[in-house]
Design a protein around this nucleic acid. Structure first.
Lengths: 150, 150
DNA sequence: CTCATTTAGTTGTTATAACAATTATATTCA
DNA sequence: TGAATATAATTGTTATAACAACTAAATGAG
């Protein structure tokens, strides 16, 4: 190792980005055989949680903007993991459903997602884990308030 | 608000990604007039910190892989913010230097980066801030150990 | 010294993300 | 009602990021 990887990171923002990318890579590595990316996985998981959500809500719940959500859902649809139905009341929107293939994939890969969590819990305590979640949620909410205020 | 934006995020990994994106957007918003992205900013800042680093070290210190670093440096070079010199001992490598224009830009924009930090500190205490840094560093190092072990 | 291996950097490909603009449908209000 | 406005989704563009493949130069073992 020639350089301390945390050299720049007096800044929480960049540090968070770097840590996130490492976790994401770890998960991606575990998903290798399943032909799905971590972000696709998170959207598929979200669709599985609540059948028939419209894309706007999937976007909000998975913390992505709508164009990104559209494209991820396109990929999931091409792979036969989800399908859409035109909303009956509002024909602008689509309700999104998971397929059996999608359900199986989520069931098979949840252990991989859990494994990433286990890795984290090997180096921080349960309380620290809770603290970390709380702090990130608080920061996220605070930033939301600020940006929505405009 | 139709959906709780933290609905999916029982998982630290995804929560961290979403929180990071919000912070990054906030910074990007502040940088609007400066024609530079947050990631370009972090690399330029890194170059400013240590003149004449080779790209490999810049990559490590800013937590990016080498192809990504190459491309970001290309953008910075095109904008006249950095320049490269062939390494005298090792002709495979380039030493990277910041230009005067780059230096001015960093000086002018450091307050914007600080502002993002201030926003964070408005919703978490100094101790929590330190804890957050420590936990992310610990997780990052732990993931590094695991993945380097292969 | 020479050939195999390693290393620094680049290029190609695909996915995600931010942002702007567009389309189609709903809603609101004069 | 009908025109202005708002909303759901999509498309286009550019930048990051992961990964694989590649070039050129350096290193190391025989």
């Amino acid at each position: 190792m020639t350089a301390n990887p945390y050299d720049l990171n007096r800044s929480i923002g960049f540090l968070m980005g770097n840590t996130y990318r490492k976790l994401s890579s770890l998960f991606q590595n575990g998903l290798k055989e399943y032909d799905i990316t971590p972000e696709q996985w998170s959207v598929l998981y979200q669709v599985d949680m609540r059948e028939g959500q419209i894309q706007k809500d999937i976007a909000e719940r998975s913390g992505k903007d709508r164009p990104t959500t559209t494209r991820i859902l396109d990929h999931l649809e091409q792979k036969g993991l989800v399908y859409k139905q035109i909303g009956e009341n509002d024909r602008r929107s689509f309700k999104v459903y998971i397929t059996d293939k999608g359900k199986s994939l989520i069931q098979e890969t949840i252990p991989i997602e859990k494994h990433v969590d286990e890795v984290i819990k090997k180096c921080i305590s349960v309380e620290e884990y809770e603290t970390l979640m709380k702090l990130m949620i608080r920061i996220g909410s605070h930033v939301n308030e600020i940006t929505e205020r405009e």
